[in-house]
């Protein structure tokens, strides 16, 4: 077995909010008919979470399920679970028009934490991140400066952000720049 490494192991920046790379994370892209009961059951069995509403994540004992588009979910779990989950999903979805792919190693994950974490993202993405518009459990696929990214808000108010691994360095760079001490806009 090769020595698995995340995109930027241990990367961390402390500004008015903290930006850190969270290490290896399991991610499974699941496409299919989201109204299908078979698919909902398979997701429940895999992650322990129900189907998320549009623009939301739902949480289970093994991880969370994010609503990516009208026919796509992202299952976020521990890194070593992803392979087994793909096998289990393919088994459970036999005969359904669906596709499950392990994309864990194509992605990088960052956590943005601190009282003003929302402001770090609000400078980079065209999204209303006020508490009212983006409460914990909200999920959004969008643009982070020049790259595609997706993020959700945790119960503790911190954000977790997923982007392509190939642009992890760029993402960490702009997030750190955005979180620099003294650069708060003071709105969020």
């Amino acid at each position: 077995m090769s020595d698995l490494k995340s995109a930027l192991p241990g990367a961390r920046f402390d500004g008015f909010a903290t930006v850190e790379e969270t290490g290896l994370r399991g991610m499974v892209t699941l496409r299919g008919d989201l109204s299908s009961k078979v698919l909902a059951k398979a997701v429940k069995a895999a992650v322990g979470a129900g189907m998320p509403q549009s623009g939301q994540v739902s949480r289970g004992d093994k991880g969370l399920v994010a609503w990516m588009s009208p026919d796509e979910l992202l299952l976020v779990v521990a890194h070593d679970l992803a392979g087994d989950i793909v096998v289990a999903l393919n088994d459970a979805l036999k005969g359904e028009h669906a596709l499950a792919v392990n994309v864990s190693d194509a992605r990088a994950v960052f956590r943005i934490a601190g009282d003003h974490a929302a402001e770090v993202l609000a400078k980079l993405a065209p999204v209303d991140l006020s508490d009212a518009a983006f409460p914990p459990g909200s999920f959004r696929r969008t643009r982070l400066a020049q790259i595609p990214a997706a993020f959700w808000r945790n119960e503790d108010g911190s954000f977790e952000l997923v982007c392509f691994r190939s642009v992890a360095d760029y993402a960490f760079g702009i997030l750190s720049k955005s979180a620099m001490k003294g650069s708060r806009v003071g709105v969020l």
Binding site: S69, R140, R143
Partner: peptide, 11 residues
Amino acid sequence: PYCGVWAEETE
């Protein structure tokens, strides 16, 4: 109309 998001032009 698919995800209900109010997206600005750059998205």
